[in-house]
Structure formats: C-alpha cells, structure tokens
Amino acid sequence: MNTSEALKRIAGRMQKSLKETKVLYTHCIGVMNDHLVERNHFNIPRLGTFGSVERKERQAYNPHFKKKMLIPRKVSVFFKPSRALKEEIK
C-alpha cells in the first residue's frame, strides 16, 4: 500500500475530500517529523510509539575496505509497535 492509496482510504473513512485529506496528511507528517527532529517521542493509539534516539560513535569493521572504521554518532528513528498491533498481526 502506498501513500495515495492510504489517503483514498482515509478520505473514504472520514467522508472528506481527497484534497482535504492530503492537506491534513502533510500537516500531520510535518508535526511528527518536527517532534522526531526534536528527539521527542509520541504514541499513536493502536499503532505504536515513534521516537528518535542518538546512537553513540562506535568502531566497526568495514568489510569492503577491510578496515576498522570509526562510525560517527547519529540519530535514528525507532518505531515500537503497540501491543494491540502486535496481537493483530500475529
């Protein structure tokens, strides 16, 4: 399923036009991204928790260069599915 298909379904469920849904979608994603950039985490009921954490710098072996490399720190996004979702898909 891709975005346009999902938006069509949401629009159908909400009984709103596709255009309105798209606008809502962009704002929703924008807010979520802002929070992720701020390293906040938030929960969406019956879906899961989104958040971002910082990974420390570490040493790793690069098999291509056959060398140990120092991987710099970075921020990664995590998603933890909620219990309800886990049960549903099991």
């Binding site: 949401i10 991204n33 898909i89």
Partner: peptide, 28 residues
Amino acid sequence: VSRLFVREMAAVIREGLLEDGVVQLSGL
C-alpha cells in the same frame, strides 16, 4: 478532525499491513 484523522491513519496502516504486508507513507 485531526484526532479522527490520526486514528483513521493508524487504522489504515493496520489494514494495509494485514493486506499487503507493506505500507509506504511518503514523508514518514
């Protein structure tokens, strides 16, 4: 409206996962 939207979005994601096993949302 926004609460409804987020709830519906979550529901659609669940549906998509159960149907196709993949849900791709642009921007996320």
